[in-house]
Simulated assay, not measured.
Amino acid sequence: LLYFRLSGIEVNPDSVGIGGNQKRSCQHRNSTKSEPDDNYERLEVKQLLQINPTDEYGFEQWHNAMRMVARLPGGIPSSFRRKVSLWLTLADRRLQQRQIDWQQTYDKCFSEHHNPEDEELGIQIVKDLHRTGCSLFASERRDNQALLKQVLLAYARFNQTVGYCQGFNMIAAIVLEVMEGNVQHALKVMIYLIEHVLPESYFTNNLRGLSVDMVVFRDLMHVKLPELAGHLYRLQQESYEPTLGIYYEPPLINAFTMQWFLTLFATCLPKPTVMRIWDLILVEGNEILLRTGLVIWNSLSDRIMAVKTADEFYSIMDVLTRELIEFGPA
């Protein structure tokens, strides 16, 4: 049985689901991490590389093989990820299914002719790049910043309904690194990720898709981590102001999980772990977001259970967030 594992916490990918007869599974296991490149010879990588993903049957073989490798304890090595063009192959396939004229799309998205709205978008993009930075995934050299701006503006031109959203800079930085700076390939992967892998309306103004995920995730927390979910719920209830009939605090689970989901964990976990999760998101689907969220909250539960107020919760989460970025889930 193959597992998606983060630092000893297992999530069984064959027994998870949202609704229906599928079940989610999250359990703790004491084991050591495998090295990323350990024993890949026995997987017959050469045979995987020979599978032709361009026809229907070949693509299914290839996709199943990639899913198998992504589920292994060490995940997909970075060199293998690039060699099989994992992300780009998935993106190209989806664009072909949508019958998108890529040359026409490329000419429009990367045109040197600037529309009036491009200037406002460009200003917002540059502000976000300077404010949040992308040093985890792309250096702050001027040419790398220019590539990021180019990809982000191109996507805003492609999908004018969504345009540009905060958090896209981190997503584009990761994609650009894996695509080795190729802006055309990076745009394809951005389109595939945002419009096919993630739920609909995830990045629209009302964040409807994200809001649905938050409701589902809170329910999952109450099922899989009932003590922690109940504790966080009680902390929020204590912020109720009866004279006004309002809660001063939002659902505490949402306060951090929303940002994790919007950036696909790029802002809260070490780079190797983020890359591992992204591989799984791309080959398995967006349920990996929910499964990873459960793994993270489970890893933090012991220290969170000790807090007595919402203020203490935010204080400890400030510490735990820094530890997550440096060390990953404990």
Score class of each variant (00 low, 15 high):
S7V: 03
I9W: 07
P13D: 07
G17R: 03
G17N: 05
G19D: 09
G20C: 01
Q22M: 04
R29S: 15
E41H: 11
L43N: 05
K46I: 06
L48W: 11
L48Q: 07
T54Q: 13
E60G: 00
M66C: 12
V69D: 02
I76W: 03
I76S: 01
S78R: 12
F80E: 01
F80Y: 10
R81Q: 15
R82C: 03
K83T: 13
R93G: 06
Q96P: 00
Q96D: 11
Q99I: 08
I100N: 01
D101P: 00
W102Q: 10
Q104M: 10
H113V: 14
N115A: 12
P116S: 02
E120R: 09
L121W: 11
L121C: 05
G122S: 15
Q124M: 12
L129A: 05
L129K: 08
L129Y: 13
E140L: 09
N144M: 11
L147N: 12
L148I: 10
V151C: 02
A154D: 06
A156W: 05
R157M: 05
F158T: 02
F158S: 03
N159E: 13
Q160R: 15
Y164V: 04
Q166P: 06
F168M: 07
A172Q: 03
V175E: 04
G181H: 04
H185V: 00
V189D: 07
M190K: 00
M190Q: 00
E195H: 14
S201D: 14
L207N: 02
R208A: 12
R208H: 15
G209D: 07
S211P: 05
V212C: 13
F217A: 03
L220T: 01
M221Y: 14
L225Y: 14
L228F: 06
A229F: 00
G230E: 07
Q236D: 00
E238C: 11
E238K: 13
P242T: 05
G245H: 10
Y248C: 05
P251H: 09
P251S: 02
M258I: 14
W260C: 08
F265M: 11
A266L: 02
A266S: 15
A266I: 04
C268D: 08
K271I: 01
L280S: 13
V283N: 09
N286G: 04
I288Q: 07
I288T: 14
L290V: 04
T292A: 11
T292V: 15
R303A: 06
R303C: 06
I304P: 11
M305R: 13
K308E: 15
E312M: 10
F313S: 02
Y314L: 06
Y314C: 04
M317T: 07
D318S: 15
L320S: 08
R322K: 14
L324F: 01
E326A: 14
G328H: 05
A330Q: 15
